[in-house]
Design a protein around this nucleic acid. Structure first.
Lengths: 222, 222
DNA sequence: TCTTGTGAAGTGATTCACAGCT
DNA sequence: AGCTGTGAATCACTTCACAAGA
């Protein structure tokens, strides 16, 4: 009962998706703690920082191993490094951007990607007026270059910042070219083949669900 | 058993959050169908469009009433209007933006908010160099104006596009001024009082959880 | 016959509570 | 004494499956 029938926690496909979604939050909080000079932390404090219950944090971590010491807590540095390794953030990830309009340019200039090992190595646009003029050192290429650049450059991630009407077609092209993850900013629910990971960034949907709750407690005088 | 002990489905606070998060997706899909000339739809087709099971859709709708006709399906127009009403999208919502840097300007220029009744009526920045120069017709004001503009203008929503270090403080100011919903683009996990609705837009977190799955099936040759 | 609306069943995630280690 | 790691219990969400209406 102690060691014979161990749980299959190392079964990687068995970790719930919600757990994976929380790990980056842990990494971020741990980095902050480290910056603030904390070398150890317990699940209670980490939970307060992220507004997550301590039990949740301990359970999440238990899917991957034992990282803490009873009575003390976790080494901030060690836990952060382990989580970064688990998430694959200890390596570099090349991404390409499709769509260099307002939004696309903001994405290229967004400083939040680089720190965790993501770099946009190429950009594409169907508008000839945009092609050729680099944005922040990143060359803007025609769509016809997409396939070659992705397959030759080991680009694993495609970032989609095109109008809704073109999004599915662009995503199909990215997948065909060999991209394995899609970060989609277009307001659509795209379909991708099995094995392709997609994340949608959709502020309009966020606002539209928010208003439901704003309607509820109109108790206070506006 | 038929009518005496009816379920408390009209108990508005009893609708699961996940359901509310899906309603805007339904609205969007229904709008598309309408644009495409479809007047009726059934849960199966709507589900295929959104990659949601038909049972899920019917169950979600059942929290709010009966919108369909057995044997036929739903009137696209009617269902869309009902959902828009339920979500509060049949009225106008004023929002203000804090932070008029790269990201903030992209948000102001983002065409996705206006169609569902959201309008950014004011913008604020702590940088004097940005204050005074309107961005796309929206005046940029100093932070000191924030309180007055929000309370006088019936601004219910604050959009936060400032650096992480300032985000919590800005959110506090917005809440104090009377905003009831926050759309936060800063990479932090802010805390807000009860009754305040917050939505976080955090592409970096999305990418960081994506890579976990990209590591898993390295079956194909890269 | 087709499709909704919904109790009941099933599945999945969170929280509890405590044994065990430091 | 303090805190982790984790089965067990609880809670929440999804899917099933079918009665009933068009």
């Amino acid at each position: 009962m102690t060691d014979a029938n161990r749980p299959i926690h190392m079964d990687l496909s068995g970790v719930p998706d919600v757990v994976i979604l929380r790990l980056p939050m842990y990494v971020r909080a741990l980095s902050q703690l480290l910056d603030a000079g904390s070398e150890v932390v317990n699940s209670h404090r980490l939970g307060r920082l992220l507004r997550i219950t301590p039990a949740q944090i301990r359970k999440d971590l238990s899917y991957f191993g034992k990282f803490g010491k009873q009575g003390q807590g976790y080494s901030v540095r060690f836990l952060r490094n382990e989580l970064r390794r688990i998430l694959g953030l200890d390596r570099n990830w090349s991404a390409c951007l499709v769509g260099v309009g307002n939004l696309g340019q903001a994405i290229i200039n967004y400083p939040g990607f680089a720190p965790e090992g993501f770099s946009v190595v190429a950009a594409f646009d169907s508008d000839p007026a945009l092609v050729g003029k680099p944005v922040r050192d990143i060359p803007v290429r025609p769509m016809s270059d997409l396939d070659a650049v992705i397959s030759e450059g080991e680009v694993a991630i495609g970032i989609v910042a095109v109008p809704a009407s073109q999004a599915q077609s662009v995503i199909d092209q990215l997948v065909d070219a060999g991209v394995r993850g899609i970060l989609n900013y277009a307001p659509v629910a795209p379909s991708v083949p099995d094995g392709i990971v997609i994340r949608n960034i959709d502020p309009a949907l966020s606002l539209q669900s928010m208003t439901y709750y704003l309607l509820q407690d109109d108790s206070r005088p506006v």
